[in-house]
């Protein structure tokens, strides 16, 4: 009898494993198939049209031939994102706090911000280069500008989305504004802040690349590398740089997802994506 019981649990375990396997296939297998098919199509086109697309081999070869050059350019782009996007995120959040606490600030400043934000960044970037030269400053500004708005809007929504009943409890305790911010608004707005960051991270890469397009030449950076190589019809370098920009974006989003999991374990409110 114990034998049959053991057999039963074993078969249960096996079917359990089966489900896990199916899930893994579903989650990883299907996207992998898509990637493989697209990569194969790419290679098929590249082999017969070397002036349209480089082959995977050519891209890899280019990366291996001069890793130091790619690394140096990658670091420049990373620096632009770290400083520019970092400042944009911080400033967007702080302004949201100021607006949530003092509605007059929102009334006064929000229209201007909306006007600035509907102006295409691509159009602002050359003007900034004229004003600030080909150095890092216009790149910081453009990168900061693109992340600023999603951070501001999301943080503001989060700071306003307080649990009204918890706020009532705090008010009957005569909690100060600072105590309400510290204990209620700040932790409570984090799901929205992370949703804002999820939008801001890929945008930061876009901002850095666009700024480098406009001010290519003097300072390096993966975006500059793309424009220079494309102008020389050097497709392997062009696409290797694009691939690195892509990887950078994926990396940033993945790191963010990891941090989110640690910080926001209590929130089931996954505003967008993971």
């Amino acid at each position: 009898m114990s034998d049959t019981a053991a057999a039963k649990t074993e078969s249960k375990a096996r079917s359990g494993q089966g489900i896990v396997l199916m899930e893994a296939l579903w989650n990883w297998g299907l996207p992998t198939i898509t990637f493989v098919v697209v990569a194969a199509l790419w290679q098929f086109v590249a082999v017969s049209n070397p002036y349209v697309l480089p082959t995977w081999g050519a891209i890899g070869q280019s990366l291996l031939n001069d890793p130091g050059m790619y690394w140096a350019n990658l670091l420049v782009t990373c620096q632009e994102i770290a400083i520019g996007a970092g400042a944009g995120i911080l400033f967007g959040f702080l302004l949201a706090v100021a607006m949530a606490e003092l509605p007059s600030i929102e009334k006064a400043v929000m229209p201007l911000i909306v006007v600035v934000m509907v102006t295409p960044v691509v159009a602002i970037a050359p003007a900034l280069v004229v004003a600030f030269g080909f150095g890092m400053t216009p790149k910081y500004i453009v990168t900061g500008l693109v992340v600023f708005f999603p951070m501001l809007v999301n943080s503001l929504a989060g700071l306003r989305d307080v649990d009204q009943k918890a706020l009532d409890v705090m008010k009957t305790l005569h909690a100060s504004r600072w105590e309400i911010f510290r204990d209620l608004r700040f932790p409570g707005c984090m799901p929205f802040v992370f949703a804002g960051l999820r939008i801001a991270m890929p945008l930061a890469v876009v901002g850095a690349a666009v700024a480098e397009f406009v001010a290519a030449g003097q300072q390096a950076g993966l975006g500059s590398l793309v424009t220079i190589a494309a102008a020389q019809a050097n497709l392997p370098v062009t696409w290797a740089s694009i691939a690195l920009l892509c990887l950078l974006g994926v990396l940033l989003v993945s790191i963010l997802a990891l941090i989110r999991k640690r910080v926001l374990w209590w929130s089931d409110q996954d505003v967008i994506g993971r």
Binding site: D163, K165, A166, V169, T172, L173, H174, D183, L184
Partner: peptide, 16 residues
């Protein structure tokens, strides 16, 4: 309220 003389139990638990 300043003296914390009022204890409120709202309709929902409103725990953080």
């Amino acid at each position: 309220a300043k003296d914390k003389a009022i204890g409120l139990v709202p309709q929902a638990p409103a725990l953080l």
